[in-house]
Design a binder for these strands. Structure first.
Lengths: 168, 168
DNA sequence: TTGACTTAGTTAGTTAGCTAACTATAATGA
DNA sequence: TCATTATAGTTAGCTAACTAACTAAGTCAA
């Protein structure tokens, strides 16, 4: 997401602000800091998942299926919830099916539709990954108390509300 | 980064916490919220840059060059600062050179080395993109006052310190 | 009822990132 | 000195995302 490692120093930002007076230095700092930490968290998550032979895309599919009462859904619904295109979901499901973590079954009513079911092996994989993920995440966030978590939540909501201004 | 659109509700998290007692619900919420907002910011940044025919990777290269006193650097140094591999940097520079935004010149001392220089067209491109980027970012962060920005900075530092615990 | 549209899923081809391996050059130490 | 090792840059091939286009099936209205 944010590859950049060499974040601008205050001096650099001031130099740029001289040429570009639109610059709001503390806004830029906050923005880059947020992207930097989020990217590092995402990389850490990837590292955790890869120990179990998973990547984020495929892992989220398993979780979405586990959330379902019948442990099953359709590629379209999964794509929507996972935030990827249906074409991408086809590829994710191909991989999961190959590894036996989900099964494709013909939908009974709509013959265009396919039912995707979490297999026992898929559930077992989650039972292996989730405790590891949750333990690590707990440790990672241990330094931030409840008050800090609430503050973060409020700040993120404020920034989120501003994103439409970014897009205009 | 975080594709997932359908973030878990409190009920879902509680259901998962029953099966996986390691779960720290407010930690998970904070983590996902942070990744979600950061991803949306990154997407908004991409949209802004694409109006000017740029993507993040190539844009950061231009900025890194503009930071240099002589407006020039080497592929290796740029790769390190941009946080990508040298192979990736080769590809980014190919594209930028094709568009005339940077120039490859032979380094005088070390004959293995190549000097990359920001061209006048490259500087002009930045002079077009940066005011737009800075204006949008200012508007996006307008809802967060200085106190909030300081709080965010502290919170991010706390979380950042915890990332090593995620990796163990 | 049939022609136009919509929806579900897949396939094909593109992209930007990656790793691994390569060439050329430089640096180092027995 | 010269054999080894390290560094700079590139190339080739992989991956997971994307868009666009396709087939098949369902829906709807004139």
């Amino acid at each position: 997401m944010l590859q950049l490692r060499d974040l601008p120093s205050r001096e650099t930002l001031e130099k740029f602000a001289t040429r570009y007076p639109q610059a709001d230095i503390s806004a830029i700092s906050a923005f880059l800091h947020l992207l930097r930490v989020a990217t590092d968290l995402s990389v850490a998550l990837d590292a955790c998942l890869s120990r179990h032979g998973l990547l984020q895309g495929r892992w989220w599919v398993l979780i979405l299926l586990m959330r379902e009462e019948a442990l099953s859904s359709t590629p379209s619904a999964l794509a929507e919830k996972a935030g990827v295109t249906r074409a991408t979901m086809t590829g994710l499901l191909d991989g999961l099916e190959r590894d036996g973590l989900v099964a494709r079954e013909l939908g009974p009513q709509d013959r265009r539709s396919v039912s995707i079911r979490l297999t026992a092996a898929g559930q077992q994989k989650l039972d292996e990954v989730m405790p590891d993920y949750y333990s690590r995440l707990r440790a990672c966030m241990a330094g931030l108390d409840e008050r800090g978590r609430e503050q973060l939540d409020e700040i993120l909501n404020l920034i989120n509300g501003g994103i439409r201004a970014f897009d205009e």
